[in-house]
Design a protein around this nucleic acid. Structure first.
Lengths: 249, 249
DNA sequence: CCTTGTGGTTCATTATTTGAACCGTTATTT
DNA sequence: AAATAACGGTTCAAATAATGAACCACAAGG
């Protein structure tokens, strides 16, 4: 792997941690030499992607991404455009709704609107959504060109719960259903007690670039209701794409 | 320079552009070989920091920073904490207010609240603020340890307008005044027609980590009013620091 | 006071990055 | 319509930067 790739993977690793981490620990976790990890960290810090706590000497994610994110969103206001749709869907469905975007080979949550109900599903913003185990991932995967689906399903599929579909053929069946309906449903594939329905957000070229998902506790989620919610999610996803891409060419 | 440093500088360069850019242009601008630039871009794209337009083949800032920014802000909600203070100050002063944060060797705007007035100053979110030529920069610089001020003023100071203080001693005078008052004032040092007052946001250790600035059109900005606004900005900056650092230890 | 851990550094060895020259394609220019 | 210039992208020997074992100095614990 290139040096740059290694450094960016180190940054990814740091981003996944929810607390500061020391040099030795980080070297172990990243399987990099301590000296190498340090050089990477110095470079990353110089550019603001990482910062070191003055007193504990531990490292954490820096502030530079905030600036870059502003610039990105000024030009591609995906979250800003989608937010009203997300909110409306959350109110309509009465459940937590989250928006995800594909980037860097992963689908990750970039916006969440919590359900108003006391008993609701909690979604972490920034969390990575596995393609085969979440409604969002299935919705995204289903509308990808066949070759890319094959590549995604080629490696072993991690098990996240007792209900995770870890067999490629089983996933393919889910994908076929998803394409037919226009939305996916994942029954506790990622987390026990949660059922989700999701629809892809498609570029004008027909390629998925993200997903819109509704997550409900199993207690409230009979299948008729989930299909109803799925249809609403698909409509909202189309609305987002239309508004987002309508303004540009 | 390290390979990583070069790649991150390339990313910075791309972030400064407000439109997509082709490989050859980018190689020229960054003074990198075309093949090298391409390898960097591939690595950056693989991690989502850069994306390539499918049809034009031009490159632009990717979506990965949005995800990292979410994670950073979940742990350090600087913007979220400061936003109400920024808004209140904008209403109180009746002028555009912007918040900046130091990161990666630069002070950059991360939040803006526009004045309600029709004739108002426009500030770009994500813009980099030169230390010697903006009120924010002066406010930040003034409270830095002497050694770091020396280092910042050692290199030649760029001229942005006819009023920019490009002489290190002239800047030092401005910094002394800033420390005494607790806020800085920049009279058209960055942009003709704009006068700003800014106050530093200090960590519990007394080190500046950002600045809060009010920008007014010269037409409305007599000095008595700017001093009044400066005092208000200083109070708001203290409020932000207290709330932001009060919650942690 | 000895052990084990930490963050950080050194420098000969090694592996990666580099860039001139090269494709094939696509806009311009003549 | 031919010629030219510019584009994005690729190749591979030469040059350079990354690597990591061994090394500090220090702190905490036994």
């Amino acid at each position: 792997m290139s040096t740059i790739g290694k450094a960016l993977s180190l940054l990814d690793l740091i981003s996944e941690l929810d607390k500061d981490i020391g040099l030795s620990d980080l070297a172990r976790l990243s399987a990099l030499d301590k000296a190498t990890a340090r050089r990477f960290l110095v470079d990353l810090e110089r550019h603001g992607f990482v910062e070191q706590d003055e007193e504990t000497r531990r490292y954490r994610l820096g502030a530079a991404p905030v600036r870059l994110a502003r610039l990105r969103q000024a030009r591609f206001p995906f979250v800003a455009v989608a937010a009203p749709f997300v909110k409306a869907l959350a109110e309509e469905a009465g459940e937590t709704v989250h928006l995800s975007e594909f980037s860097g080979g992963r689908l990750s949550t970039i916006h969440v609107e919590d359900s108003a109900q006391a008993h609701r599903v909690i979604v972490d913003p920034g969390a990575v959504l596995p393609f085969h185990a979440t409604a969002s991932g299935l919705a995204y995967l289903a509308f990808l060109p066949p070759g890319e689906i094959d590549r995604a399903l080629a490696r072993p599929l991690e098990r996240f719960s007792a209900h995770t579909a870890t067999d490629a053929d089983a996933v393919r069946t889910l994908l076929r259903e998803t394409v037919e309906r226009g939305y996916s449903i994942s029954q506790q594939g990622f987390e026990i007690g949660v059922i989700s329905a999701a629809a892809p957000i498609l570029t004008p070229g027909g390629r998925p670039m993200g997903a819109l998902a509704v997550a409900a506790p199993t207690a409230r989620a009979d299948m008729a209701r989930m299909h109803e919610i799925g249809r609403k999610a698909a409509a909202a996803a189309r609305g987002i794409a239309e508004k987002y891409y309508g303004g540009r060419t």
